[in-house]
Nucleic acid binder design. Structure first.
Lengths: 223, 223
DNA sequence: CCCATAGCTTAAAGGAAACGTAAGCTTAAA
DNA sequence: TTTAAGCTTACGTTTCCTTTAAGCTATGGG
């Protein structure tokens, strides 16, 4: 499989590193730009950038200006990164050709989920239906089926189950789960995970037994 | 295989020595820094440091500040060392970019396990499945198989067996085992080991005979 | 062959981790 | 503003693991 290029544009070094880490781990080639000019230069120089992640709040040239400039030369998919409370401009954004929004702070799973969704839409990514232990996850429909029957899961439950299944057979510490499924600035009680696991097990019925407890260690999904 | 560099940052001499000894024994090249400034200087001077172990509680510049400073220039993997019950509110917002935590006191095995896990994730380490005397240890799945059949081991049993197999053919004194598998400040009865060995032998069946008693000395794992 | 020492076994106390329930809080919808 | 849903936290309960203690057995030197 070819290595897709993603460009992250943000003035904050930390944010770029964060996104770079997550997406590199997922097998993308990540390019970084610290401001709008750099972004446009880089976009023109590099061929076949598959997706751009664009921060709205930047000094000098803000995200909307960068967006407009890039839309003049390309219809590459663009995801805007906004801080909570900045969403008022969304309608304007969609008119200008924004494909998706991510609100900061976000979890690694959200990031990769949105990126996957976009690439799927533009036909550059693989299937989005996974199956394990009688559980089927359909990310496009955001739907879970157990033995054919649809099960209603909350948002977090869905994310958690998806993470388990993506890492089936691997023992996961609570710390690991917290870092990957929850927002990057979340610091909470690890017991929160226990509660969600409990709910998942209940909703999944017998298939829920696939989520094993590893005493003194964490959890593991096993078919 | 290349010799990976690990940097330990802690104001306590004892802790640095401890970590240095453990990791040197595991074939790492260990560098020490007694405070944040020294750490940053050293990190900039030395090329290709593969991993940083960073204590949180330090005078002058604390671990979080060091973390932020280093994250500005690099995305090197970082493991934070925290004391049990340390003020967790200050963690808010600083979590960004930490790969793993280790709570003091820890056992050498925990230390090397986390280090290995990180390096595995960043693709700089080898496989984590070992086999000896018909016993297979899979650290990723946190699973032990004897002649193909999965055997349920408790946390300590798992750690102990792993230590035996890593040191197969080597006679280990009880003191040695206590120092390596138990927390570094644990001072318990050596009979504790006997009990765990007994359970291991029972659970491993005939393969359990690979754990030999060396009278007046300790134990040895031999295929 | 006996004794001292080291190791083995068992059971039970104690502790730590996980579970279950419910209440509090936050966010989104009506 | 009210309502509802989901997320998080708190806490008592339960389960499981670790350690200790005590008696028993094996080993090897005298």
């Amino acid at each position: 499989m070819e290595e897709l290029k993603v460009l992250i544009v943000d003035d904050e070094e930390r944010m770029r590193k964060l996104v770079n880490d997550f997406l590199t781990a997922k097998g993308f080639k990540v390019l970084e730009a610290a401001d709008g000019e750099e972004a446009i230069d880089l976009f023109c120089a590099e061929k076949d950038i598959a997706l751009i992640l664009l921060d709205v709040m930047m000094p000098k040239m803000n995200g909307w200006e960068v967006l407009k400039a890039i839309r003049k030369i390309s219809k590459v998919p663009i995801i805007m990164l906004t801080a909570r409370g900045e969403e008022q401009d969304e309608l304007q954004g969609f008119k200008l050709g924004v494909d998706e929004y991510i609100t900061k702070p976000f979890s690694p799973k959200i990031l990769t989920a949105r990126v996957d969704a976009i690439l799927r839409r533009t036909g550059r990514s693989k299937s989005d239906v996974t199956e394990a232990a009688g559980i089927t996850i359909d990310k496009t429909a955001h739907e879970v089926r157990v033995d054919g029957k649809t099960v209603d899961l909350s948002y977090k439950e869905f994310e958690l189950l998806d993470y388990f299944i993506q890492n089936k057979g691997i023992a996961l510490s609570r710390e690991n789960i917290l870092n990957n499924v929850w927002d990057y600035d979340y610091f909470g009680d690890a017991r929160t995970i226990d509660t969600h696991v409990k709910k998942l097990r209940a909703k999944l019925g017998p298939s829920g037994e696939a989520i094993k407890t590893i005493w003194g260690m964490g959890y593991k999904f096993e078919a």
